[in-house]
Design a protein around this nucleic acid. Structure first.
Lengths: 198, 198
DNA sequence: GGTATGATTGCGGAAACCCACAATAGCGGT
DNA sequence: ACCGCTATTGTGGGTTTCCGCAATCATACC
């Protein structure tokens, strides 16, 4: 496992307890006393998981969560709360939080949750990386090539594509060849299998 | 919009208020005084949306939800609760509930939520129906045809598939043709676009 | 024993795909 | 004017797909 578990809570005893807990399980953890402190500690590249207290001084957990997402960070977030705040729980979960736990929490449960979050995120990251790779490749296509790609994915024959675009079949063949090369696949089937119906 | 909005709550005033509310918006709604009553009113085929109170006599909302899911019903469920029960909210949302609302609720909010739930479910249903259609078709393939299908999706040529399976290319061609026919597509690209990397 | 289903293979051919080589043309930047 | 990039089209040819016609074989079921 790579990355650090970041604990953001304004109560030092909680931070210390969680830090100690994760350390004792061989997990790399670090505490922060406020949302501002955590967020300004850029870069947050080594985030494996973030544990956020809901109620903190200026910046509450949900706000920190929102800012993380706003800056494109997809790290899994587990909320801790000492108050039975259902609307906040619902909102954060629907916004993509991994879990929402009431204090006092169970040690094993929290560790388990963090591990699950990290595992799920890593799996999602692998998928996302593959997807980004495809997107990057696809972005390198010229406008015409992109058009041809779309029609290819609809299962159209070169001749039909040529008619749709009002160009010669030979031209379509050339575009098609370039598309396959740029997308790093050997044939249209592989391409369609990766891109699906997008 | 098709189907009825089912309201399951042991408090008659709430049922009546919600029924009246939905009726006044031109939505078809019906109330039930208990989970048992609702569940035993088979078939539940015309469910567009279910609104469940969390705490009810014998069978609580979460249990009703669980049973619905256990019997394969994917209808969107909105929970209502009079008590700030965070763990239940978290559990039900993670189990796929559409939303979790605290009483007292806002009339417009509830209607809006129900409409959103129904719209989302209908969209999901359309996707699921297409998927089921594919699954059904795929299930009609013979074992050999399924093998050939898999290798086709990997972008392998007939010759390579023939080598992989240790059979003649002509045989692969026959299987391939039958696969395309049974899956109701015109070529391998269409097939791959629908099935993706499955 | 008869029948049905599915796997297997061959022959031959039309249509489609893929590509190397070659050429023309427009557009934007130096 | 020259260069780089892209679109465009043609010729020719090897490869692959798709399919009709025909046949053999095994398994399972009546």
């Amino acid at each position: 496992m790579t990355g650090t578990i970041h604990i953001v809570d304004d109560e030092e005893p909680i931070r210390d307890a969680l830090s100690f807990l994760f350390d004792s399980r061989g997990l790399n953890a670090r505490g922060w006393a406020s949302g501002e402190e955590f967020l300004s500690a850029q870069p947050l590249a080594d985030c494996a998981c973030v544990i956020l207290d809901v109620r903190m001084g200026d910046l509450g957990g949900p706000e920190v969560f929102e800012r993380l997402r706003a800056m494109g960070n997809r790290v899994p977030v587990i909320f801790l709360t000492g108050h039975a705040d259902v609307p906040v729980a619902v909102r954060t979960l629907k916004a993509g939080a991994f879990d929402f736990v009431e204090k006092p929490f169970n040690d094993n449960q929290i560790v388990d949750l963090a591990l699950k979050a990290i595992a799920a995120h890593e799996a999602a990251e692998a998928m996302a990386a593959a997807r980004r790779d495809l997107e990057t490749r696809r972005a390198s296509l010229s406008a015409r090539e992109e058009e041809v790609l779309r029609l290819m994915l609809q299962g159209q024959l070169n001749k039909q594509i040529a008619d749709s675009l009002g160009i010669a079949m030979r031209t379509v063949e050339v575009h098609r060849g370039r598309v396959l090369a740029k997308m790093a696949v050997r044939n249209a089937v592989e391409l369609a299998a990766m891109l699906g119906g997008d």
